[in-house]
């Protein structure tokens, strides 16, 4: 972007100027700043999927419907749209851990999870999570104990999978809105667990 020499500096330059001043004065650490930007861009939300999960955790009737007919139960909350025509929800249990991949491309339930993160589209994830899921999950920070079976689900244009994560201990009595704030995209894809704050 070429600034107009006659006009006042635009917001991009003002932001850069402010950042320089704050870093020079030790008020902001650039690495910390990078981390916040990354976190909020990539890891916060997606709210729709989190809302679905929190509802299932607090409403047994909805939970049963969601696991029986995910597309309809999700649509009932107003989350419909392209790439969400046929969604299947898999329940995480003490015995089985589900993880979702699209081995061919990056099929992903857009209406609930937004656009897929970059690692989901990565050829290494797509190939390796099928061959060695326990290792890949461990590399991503999720240790699945040996006694818990891992099932890998391959999303396609016809069927898009998502998981219903396990509700973390210590969250009894929390309202659905607060529960939704705990649910991450990664947990719904099955590469993380939901943690209590």
């Amino acid at each position: 972007m070429t600034p107009d020499p006659a006009g006042p500096p635009g917001p991009s330059l003002r932001t850069e100027a402010l950042e320089e001043l704050l870093v020079e004065r030790g008020l902001v650490d650039r690495a910390v700043l990078d981390g916040f930007v990354r976190t909020y861009e990539q890891d916060v939300g997606p709210l729709n999927g989190a809302t679905v999960v929190a509802r299932a955790w607090t409403d047994p009737g909805y939970r049963a419907w969601l696991l029986y007919d995910g597309t309809a139960a999700i649509a009932s909350l107003g989350f419909t749209g392209p790439q969400g025509e046929h969604m299947v929800v898999l329940e995480q249990t003490a015995d089985v851990h589900h993880v979702v991949v699209c081995t061919l491309c990056s099929c992903y339930p857009w209406p609930v999870l937004g656009l897929p993160p970059s690692w989901y589209k990565d050829p290494a994830y797509r190939a390796r999570v099928v061959r060695e899921p326990r290792t890949v999950l461990a590399e991503m920070g999720l240790d699945v104990p040996r006694e818990r079976r891992i099932e890998v689900w391959d999303s396609s244009a016809e069927v898009r999978y998502l998981t219903l994560p396990r509700r973390p201990a210590g969250t009894a009595g929390l309202p659905a809105e607060e529960l939704a704030a705990l649910v991450t995209r990664d947990a719904i894809v099955g590469v993380a667990e939901v943690a209590a704050r």
Binding site: T15, L22, V28, D29, V32, L33, F36, V37
Partner: peptide
């Protein structure tokens, strides 16, 4: 994104 991150960091 930078402006957002600065406010959150501060």
């Amino acid at each position: 994104g930078r402006a957002f991150g600065m406010a959150v960091a501060l």
